[in-house]
Amino acid sequence: MTDPKYPRSEVNSEKCKGCGLCIAACPMHVLVESPKLNSKGYHFAEYVGKGCVGCGNCFYNCPEPDAILVYLKNYDPEKEV
C-alpha cells in the first residue's frame, strides 16, 4: 500500500522560524530541518513526505499560529468548504 495523502503535516516555510520544537516533538521523526534557508534566514522545518500519524504534536508545539498545518486522518478534501 502506498503512503496515504492524509494524515499529513505541512510547514509554511516562510512563517517557520526554525526553532526545531516540532522536529523534537514528532514521535514518527518525519519532520526534519531543511538544508535550505527561508527569506528570514531560518532553516525551516520540512515534512519528509510520509509517515505522519496525525498526532498533532508538531502543531501544538509550534509557537507560530500558522507555520504548521496538520491534515488529520479523517480529512476529506471533498467535504471541506
Partner: peptide
Amino acid sequence: KDRTHYCPGCGHGILHKLIA
C-alpha cells in the same frame, strides 16, 4: 503582519495558540 513578534521557540506562542 502575518507572523508574531515572538522569538523562535517562545512559549508565549504555544500558549497563545491553545487559548485561541
